[in-house]
Structures are given as structure tokens and as C-alpha cells.
Write a protein that binds this DNA or RNA. Structure first.
Lengths: 340, 340
DNA sequence: AGACAAAATGTGAAGGTTCACATGCCGCCT
DNA sequence: AGGCGGCATGTGAACCTTCACATTTTGTCT
């Protein structure tokens, strides 16, 4: 090495010669083909290690028409939820032996979706996962452009019939609402996430459904953008509007943190005057003041199931059978209490 | 399409025929080679769009010996800092026209580093960035195995002579310590991150250096694992040890949150009895109770500079010239106050 | 007008793998 | 003993580009 020009790559042929077999036999060893004599296989494997040979992915996918690579298209991963999904999906993919190519669109996508898909497609990815949290992304567009590549949607519209895996945010919303109701609250306000996020919508529908079951309508509905700052402002608006409410259902933990801060700043105690719930269960949430009652989402399960579904689809493109739901879990802490 | 077998890919040759030129000319158009007659170029580009042709990355990198792909190797991205680095690096890479292959090792790496590098190497990546926050990763090992591939270390040992970009955590530590001293604090305890993280070490050295300048030694040093829970426990240990301290320097915001929670639980007011500082400036930190004084890190700049450095290195492997530092910024909020 | 350089385009090979098929060998059945 | 099926291995072509070089066209200078 360090031989002036870049050292020539070790190729399958080098291994074959050294082992005294043909390149095809080496190929078979690599691909775990059954009909190779055990001793031949051993010899080849030995040489592979000795020569430090690594198959060339480019050549391999060129010849095989598949890349053992998956695409993960995401947006808005600056937020806790999507980020966790991404991490867990990648982890599951790797466990399944796939490499992951990541296209991160950012929220203001313009035609970046198009170019991102171009990029991924040009890699001949074997499949794709789209973290389709945001409605504007028009999953159909993706599907069309991927032209036949198996695709799983993650965190998309509740009830979508496309192959998708989502956490059952509706159930989570219902659970949170019911929790407040059980504590005796009747005047309950909502702080939702941005309307173009499916999750925000579904959580809200869950809340409303939960309230309706008890014959209650939301006292007030405000909107935030998932950030603590927006949660602060939304809560401030609620208080300043003079709405008398003793319960506050918030779309995620970060906004809940901001909301609690605003309530305190206005002289309201949590949960003394107002009970607050969040959504996500970030590691921090248990250490908020007060510790936050929230809806925990099993992102790890989401990642695993998403991958499992995708692998099914890669194996048999006809296997698509709609949406799979992952149940959330209500975590009760000290930010909610019985109505005074 | 949907023609039974998988639709044949549109190739350069298809475009060439349609445009009435040779495949080489199409190649030249794609690669922005100067000597192509403008009208020919226009015709070819038109056909490319019409036929929806996309160059095949696998074939391209096989032939060209480069992939326009970068590897980002990371570990522990479940934490805020490394995660932000990752996001920003990917973003910068894409802006520079590179695709990013992501190898996420997780903390307990075993030989996963080895296999990860194998994977990346087999892709013929043009360069690599290693988020080398954790010492155990032995960057040398990576460098050796990458055998000549340009590599930049991110968030590694302070003062390392390897091509690297880090945020100047030492300066950040000094600033935090000096801040407490300026407020009149003299008994100051430390809650550090795990010792195998370079950043934890450097922050601590910064704190100690800052205190030493004022002739002060740390009252007590505790350790956490970056999580809020560990911050809680560390602070609890400090209080329970009976150490009288009025200042608490914490290794990151998450642990600071936990620490504040523990202090309150022990009846100590923040900042009334104890002033607390963090590190990171997460979006949540401004909404803690009290809002956290912390050291903000410019992860975006880190990502940009890391990529810029790597591109220099890819262009000229001899361009390596040591470590580049990005200054942090002390953000003073309400968790610190003058000593009573 | 002729010659020569530069621009524009084309040709053959190579890159490292997999696929489809062909071959050689052995054991077993009737 | 002849033949046949299965296992183990080898051969040629294909995948889609880029590179190095060859060739044709265009333009310019004297």
C-alpha cells in the first residue's frame, strides 16, 4: 500500500486464483449458495479474510439489479417523534442486513422531494420507507415516482389503506382525554400541532372523540408548531382569552413544557389549577416540574414493524394489506390531578 | 409498464439513440463536459427528461471509481448533541451534492465498528466523517481500515492533531465557570458526563481551569450518563453528601433538568440556594423552571465546517491541517443568580 | 487556399459482480 | 453394466457507465 497510485482493489478474481477455484465459486461462497463443498468454502473464506477482500457493492448491484439498500425519506426530523422513528427504522434495517440511504427533505420541500427521489431511484434501492408525517408530501407522488419499488408509509394518515405503520394516536388522544375526564375535569382546552401533520390531526380527533363520549366539547382550541415556544404562546393565549379551563391537552411534550411555563407565569398552578397532558414521553418529560402525564409511543416497535412490513413487501409485492397500528400507552405522572 | 417482468431500465444508450448521438455524448452532457455543442446538449437534455432517464449510480461508481457518496459514522445519536451533528452534517453533505450513507454504531459497539466500516468501504465512499464523541472508538482503527479514504473527525479529543472539527467545549466550560464565579459563588460542584466521552472530559477541564483561575477547586465531582435520570441521581448524591455548594456546573441540559428536579425535591431553590448551568441549549431549555443558563453550541456551523474540511481533503489529501474549533456561546437565563 | 489547432463527437475497453447455462464427476438404480 | 439424477464447479455474457484514445468537423491564421 501507499504505492504511489491508489492501491488496486482486491477483487473476486484475486481470491479465486489464490484459492485455486473460479471466480464463480467465490461468488457462490459469498452468496451462501448451497452447493459448494464445505472444504472449498472454508478455503475460500480463509483467503477472503487473508486478502481482506470485500465485495464491491457497485458492481454487485449493477449485476444483480438490486442493491441491498433501502431508502428512508423523512421530513422535519428536528422534532422528537420523527427523529426517533428515523433512528429506529435505520436500526431495524441494519439488523435485517440492509444499508440505508437517507433523504431528509426538511419541512419546506419545494421540489426537493422530486430530486430526492431521483437520487434514491438512481441507486436502485430495493425498497423505501417514507416518514410521511406531513400531509403536504403527497405520498401518491412518491409512490408514482418510485414506480414499483416497495414502499411503506410511516406515521401517515390514520386509517389510510396504503401499506403503512403508525402509532395509534387516536387511541392515545382518547386515553388522554378520558384521563382528564376521570379526574373530574369538564372545561378542557386543546393545544394542537400544525394542521398539516397527520399526527396532530389524529391526536386532536382522539381528544375530541374522548370528550364527546363524556358529552363535552373542547373549551378552546389553540395551535402550535411543536416547539416549546409555541406551546408557551398558545397557553398564554388561552389564559388571556379568559377561558376558564382546568384541563389542557397538548399535542406533544415540548409544547406542554412551554404551556406549563406560561401557566405558571400567569400565576396558575399545575396541576393545582390546571391539569396538563403531553404526547411522546421524551426522556426529559419525567423531570419536568411537575413531571408530565403524557402518552408514550413505542418508536422502537414502529421501526421494527415498519421494516418487517417492508421486507414482506419486497418478498411479495402483493402482500400489501393496509395499515398496521401500534398501541400507545398513557403514562400518568404529576401534571394531572383531580379537579379541585 | 406493469409489463409482466420488471420494466427495463432506461439507459444512456436509449437516450443516445433517441437523440441521434453516441452514448458518450450523453455521458458528456450528464457530466457537464464543456465540449458539447449547445444545441446537442439541449436536445439530449430534452430527451433525458422525456424518457425520464436517470443515470445508474452503481454503474457510474463502478466505472468512475468514485461514488459521490459520503459515510457518516456515528454513535450514541440518541443524545441531543450527536444527533444535531448528524442532522447538520447530512444537510451540508447534500448541499455539496453528496449522498450520505449512515452507519450508526450504537454505544456498545463490540465489533460493530469493524463490520460497519466493511460495509462503507464496500461502497467506495469518497470520504467519511466520524462523529468520534466516544473515546473507545479508537479513531486510528477507523483510519487504518478506511485505507486512504479522506476522513474528518467530529467532536473528538480537544487538541487532537488529526483533521477534525469540534466545538470548543473547553472555552465553554471556562465561560460557565467564570459566570458562576462572577456571580460570587465559591463552593461549586460538578456533574460530568461519562468519562469515555471526549466532550465530557473537555467540559470538565474547562470548568476546572475556570475555577482554578479564581483559586477555587471543585467542591465535589459527580458523574452522570447524559440522561435526566442520572442528573437527578448525581445531584441527589451531592446534596446527601452534605456538600455545601451554591453553584452546580452540569455537563448537559438534560442532566441539568434532572439535577434541578432533585434539588427542588430536597427543598433547595434554584437559583435561590443553588445556581445551575447546563450545556447544549436544547430548544426546551429556555422553558425549564427556571429557564436554564447554558452553553449554546452551533451545530449547524459544525456540520458546515466539517463538510467544507472534508471536501478540501477529497480535493487534496495533503490539505489536512489539524483541528478547527468552533466557539460556543454562554446563554444566561434564570437558573443562575448572584450568591445570596 | 492550405494547413493546423481546437472543438465536437465517436469507438473500444474496462470496471467487478451475477445470471444462465454448460460441463465434469460421483453414486445409485434396475 | 448402462444410464440417469444431483452435486460441484466452470464459462461466457450482461449490467451501465467512464476512461483513454481515435476520428471527424469547424474555425482561424497566413
Amino acid at each position: 500500500m501507499a504505492e504511489g497510485g491508489r492501491a488496486r482493489r482486491v477483487t473476486m478474481l484475486d481470491v479465486a486464483e489464490a484459492a485455486g477455484v473460479s471466480y464463480q465459486t467465490v461468488s457462490r461462497v459469498i452468496n451462501h449458495h448451497p452447493s459448494v463443498k464445505p472444504e472449498t468454502r472454508a478455503r475460500v473464506l480463509d483467503l477472503i479474510k487473508q486478502l481482506n477482500y470485500r465485495p464491491d457493492r457497485a458492481a454487485r448491484s449493477l449485476a444483480a439489479h438490486r442493491s441491498w439498500t433501502l431508502a428512508v425519506i423523512s421530513c422535519g426530523i428536528e422534532f422528537y417523534g420523527p427523529m426517533q422513528m428515523l433512528i429506529n427504522i435505520e436500526h431495524s434495517a441494519r439488523e435485517a442486513g440492509y444499508d440505508v440511504l437517507n433523504a431528509n427533505l426538511g419541512l419546506h420541500q419545494g421540489n426537493s422531494l422530486h430530486s430526492a427521489l431521483d437520487r434514491l431511484f438512481s441507486w436502485r434501492v430495493d425498497g423505501a420507507l417514507l416518514i410521511a408525517s406531513v400531509a403536504a408530501q403527497s405520498a401518491e407522488h412518491v409512490i408514482a415516482q418510485l414506480s414499483g419499488t416497495p414502499l411503506i408509509l410511516i406515521d401517515t394518515a390514520y386509517g389510510s389503506s396504503a401499506p403503512s405503520v403508525i402509532i395509534d394516536q387516536h387511541a392515545g388522544g382518547v386515553a388522554a382525554a378520558r384521563h382528564l375526564i376521570d379526574l373530574g375535569h369538564r372545561e378542557i382546552a386543546l393545544i394542537c400541532g400544525p394542521v398539516d401533520w397527520y399526527g396532530a390531526l389524529t391526536r386532536r380527533e382522539g381528544w375530541v372523540a374522548g370528550l364527546r363520549d363524556a358529552g363535552i366539547a373542547p373549551a378552546l382550541i389553540e395551535m402550535g408548531d411543536w416547539t416549546p415556544a409555541s406551546g408557551y404562546q398558545a397557553a398564554a393565549r388561552i389564559v388571556d382569552a379568559g377561558a376558564r379551563c382546568t384541563g389542557l391537552l397538548v399535542g406533544n411534550d415540548a409544547m406542554a413544557l412551554g404551556a406549563i411555563s406560561a401557566l405558571k407565569a400567569r400565576g396558575l398552578a399545575v396541576p393545582g389549577d390546571v391539569s396538563v397532558t403531553g404526547f411522546d414521553d421524551m426522556p426529559e418529560s419525567a423531570y419536568f416540574d411537575p413531571p408530565l402525564t403524557t402518552v408514550a409511543q413505542d418508536f422502537s416497535a414502529l421501526g421494527r414493524q415498519g421494516m418487517a412490513y417492508l421486507i414482506e413487501l419486497i418478498g411479495d409485492p402483493e402482500a400489501a394489506n393496509g395499515q398496521r397500528l401500534i398501541p400507545p400507552r398513557l403514562v400518568v405522572r404529576a401534571s394531572t390531578a383531580a379537579r379541585a
